[in-house]
Design a binder for these strands. Structure first.
Length: 768
DNA sequence: TCACAGTGACTTTTT
DNA sequence: GTCACTGTGA
């Protein structure tokens, strides 16, 4: 495509953003304003028109999906952009650290610990604490890293002022360094540290990348900002794109201030606003804007709906969450009969747990669906086992991995035996007083060799088990090294993209040559030789088969990588950084079930935002900045819709196994009543203001037959509730079509109930 | 070392 | 209501 062609489809602000040069640039891009198009066009334009070398362009995003999409679209516009570096922040950090491992105190084979591994590691060092307590500490450590606070930073008190926390953090860092591995925070933090301490490394990077672009800049955290500052020299052209109204990751350290103060931080910044929305019909944009306008801390912008007017968003109050799922299913099925494909629909919810009801209902009604994001494939036990094995093959310092799999399947190496080996290894390697340092200092410390030395000290059963385990690890290591040595051709693309750093996406992963299926051969052998396949198959008839199939899936995934040490490193890194499974060849025509967070960057012709209830969305007692973030989340959800938007809010919901009375979300009150069409029953609390109830064809979900037993629930009647004890009905009335009672309990509390749904909890006490 | 039952937390959101 | 972790007993 020629620059004339792709520039001609842009509006004037977009074109201005693409062709801007000579100063830092901040693009404030509203929802649906074509921001990805601007970035990719800018990449193409810089290469084609300005003679910028494609490999000196760096563009970072937050999600792998976004990185992939950007790479794909840029390549379509300008094939040479294949050599540009388009990655996520974390993947860029890993890329940097592989090349500068020694400076960061890492093993170049490092693997990336997820929260689970990190918790295990710290838990070992703090045996007095429960796993849950440790997990909370790990969580705060990760927050500290988001803000670039080390254990000794005085500002660490902002996260947790308890000195024990700083100690735990220090201990964690020590142990993590000893394993030679990193956590997610390190992928950002360590490159910053290396570049600040070694200016020659920093300057090399600065001369490598003359153009740096950041997408979704509103979601960057302090550490990422520091990274950006480190790689951006006076000569670098810096361009960031973002929308302060779509900042929804504060909870994990995102700093909206980064975007709000960008122009101050980088003097001479040009600001360009993209305010033409190409996605949503006007009435949808209207309510989205009304809600987000209630926020105070925002730059403010006015989106114009280019696509013109359309149907008003529809608000429905189902009686219960079962009615909610039924309503959605019916709405979608009916539309299907009119020729609307399944894939036009997305069901949005605040928390992953809410997907379950929809899945059940859709299965029942044979509506094809896919759940996005919650695929916990890599968190499954059998997968983590296999990955731990692979990590240990690469890195003999990985105590967490050793501990996890040394006795899986059972080899007579219980908790005590495994800890003994680890303790001995630690004494050997990390205790300065130890004299038994037989391994030269340059040699890699290795739990396996320590285990081999201790072999004789174990009882018979443990001895043979351990010997077998060591044998498997050594066989696998030998296989890896042999392949790496002899088959230099398999290894032609020296993995980790040393030659071509563009490989953020799985689509560029090269198929290994000839009949071999690359690393898959290795992984396949490993899961078998390790006994993991037999172990999991034997555990449970049904689940076992599934687990073996999952491991097989892992084997398949490995076939995209060369059989070599580097190939394995790359494979593990890819898995840690991109846990979204490849969208299998599932039916593309299916309804999308997705959390609101996960929808960022996506769009659907028809969207249903569910669970708009106080306590769910927004989550309980949110206030101040947290509430503003929830409001932005609502804004993000609404602006995903192109043509039709539906909102549902249940009166009753089962929560924690308990049936709760729900109030409509406060966001619903922030929408003008004229801007929205209410279908079906309106709860009394919401009915004030005289909205008219229009009963459309789809309101069937809200209609209830008269309860023949209503007569029982009379004021004065005594009853017993499992949780609250004895009480007396103080009031009984009807709201909508529902019978509602108030109960005064003996313990002093007064509660509202819907007998229709809660009768099983409310035992009427027989009257004499 | 393993199986079982009792307990308590859990529902944010993700790289 | 469900899951994961803990402690007990065999």
């Amino acid at each position: 495509m020629t620059p004339e062609t792709y520039l001609s489809v842009l509006n004037s602000q977009q074109r201005e953003a693409v062709t801007h040069e000579g100063s830092p640039l901040l693009i404030l891009a509203g929802a649906g304003s074509g921001k990805t198009r601007v970035i990719t066009t800018k990449i193409a334009w810089l290469i084609a028109e300005r003679g910028v070398e494609s490999e000196s362009i760096l563009a970072v995003t937050f999600t792998n999906k976004a990185a992939r999409e950007m790479a794909e679209r840029a390549r379509r516009l300008e094939p040479r952009s294949e050599r540009s570096v388009l990655r996520t922040f974390h993947s860029f950090g890993a890329w940097f650290l592989r090349r500068n491992a020694a400076l960061a105190g890492l093993d170049s084979n490092f693997t990336i610990y997820d929260d689970d591994d990190a918790t295990t590691l710290l838990g070992k060092a703090l045996p007095a604490l429960t796993r849950q307590q440790v997990s909370a500490i790990v969580h705060r450590i990760s927050r500290a890293k988001d803000y670039c606070y080390g254990p000794d930073d005085p500002l660490l008190a902002e996260i947790d002022s308890n000195p024990d926390f700083a100690d735990a953090y220090r201990l964690y860092e020590k142990r993590l360094r000893e394993t030679g591995n990193v956590d997610f925070g390190d992928l950002i933090l360590l490159p910053v540290r290396v570049m600040n301490e070694h200016h020659e490394v920093r300057d090399r990077l600065r001369s490598r990348f003359s153009v740096v672009m950041v997408d979704e800049y509103q979601d960057s955290n302090v550490a990422q900002f520091e990274l950006l500052r480190a790689i951006t020299g006076p000569e670098t052209y810096l361009c960031v794109v973002g929308d302060d109204d779509q900042s929804i990751y504060r909870f994990r350290g995102a700093e909206v201030r980064n975007i709000l103060t960008f122009a101050d931080t980088f003097p001479g910044t040009t600001v360009i606003r993209l305010e033409q929305n190409y996605r949503s019909k006007e009435p949808i944009l209207d309510i989205a804007s009304q809600v987000v306008a209630k926020n105070e801390g925002r730059l403010g912008k006015t989106l114009v709906a280019v696509r013109g007017t359309g149907r008003k968003p529809v608000l429905v109050f189902p009686g219960s969450q079962d009615d909610e799922t039924a309503f959605c299913a019916e709405l979608i099925s009916n539309a299907r009969k009119q020729g609307v494909p399944w894939q036009d629909w997305a069901i949005l919810y605040r928390t992953n747990a809410q997907s379950l009801g929809f899945e059940t209902e859709f299965l029942h009604r044979k509506i094809p669906y896919k759940v996005v994001g919650s695929l916990k494939f890599y968190e499954r036990e059998e997968i983590k086992d296999a990955l731990a094995f692979l990590s240990l093959v690469l890195n003999g310092r990985d105590e967490v991995a050793f501990h996890r799999i040394a006795n899986k399947p059972a080899r007579g190496l219980g908790e005590v035996s495994r800890n003994r080996i680890i303790d001995e290894y630690r004494r050997d390697v990390f205790d300065p007083d130890s004299v038994s340092t037989e391994l030269g200092f340059d040699e890699h410390p290795d739990i396996i060799s320590v285990a081999a030395r201790l072999l004789e000290t174990f009882s018979k059963k443990a001895r043979s088990g351990l010997a077998e385990f060591i044998h498997v690890i050594e066989t696998m290591r030998a296989m890896l090294d042999k392949e790496a040595g002899s088959a230099a051709d398999t290894n032609a693309q020296p993995a980790a993209n040393a030659g071509n750093p563009a490989g953020a996406e799985r689509s560029t992963a090269k198929k290994p040559k000839k009949g071999a299926v690359g690393l898959a051969v290795f992984v396949d052998k490993l899961i078998d030789a390790s006994g993991l396949v037999a172990y999991h198959r034997g555990q449970d008839e049904v689940a076992g088969t599934q687990r073996v199939a999952n491991m097989q899936e892992l084997v398949n995934a490995a076939s995209l990588y060369p059989l070599s040490r580097e190939g394995l490193v790359e494979f593990l890194e890819h898995i840690e950084l991109d846990r979204s499974m490849a969208e299998d060849d599932e039916n593309p025509d299916s309804v999308t079930l997705i959390t609101v967070h996960n929808t960022k960057g996506l769009e659907f012709p028809r969207v249903i935002i569910t669970g708009l209830e106080s306590g769910i969305f927004p989550r309980d007692d949110k206030s101040g900045d947290d509430l503003e973030e929830e409001r932005r989340l609502m804004y993000v959800g609404c602006t995903r819709a192109m043509d039709e938007l539906y909102l549902t809010s249940c009166s009753v919901r089962r929560l924690y196994g308990r049936t709760e009375f729900m109030e409509p979300s406060r966001f619903l009150y922030e929408i003008d009543r004229d801007s929205i069409e209410v279908l079906g029953n309106i709860p009394r609390t919401f009915g004030i203001g005289g909205a008219t109830s229009s009963r459309g064809a789809i309101s069937s979900a809200g209609k209830m037959p008269e309860d023949p037993l209503a007569a029982q629930w009379k004021p004065g009647r005594k009853l017993f509730h499992d949780d609250y004890g004895y009480g007396i009905i103080s009031k009984a009335f009807t709201a909508g079509d529902e019978l509602v009672i108030m109960v005064q309990f003996e313990n002093g509390g007064e509660k509202r109930f819907l007998p229709k749904y809660q009768a099983h909890n409310l035992l009427l006490v027989e009257q004499d």
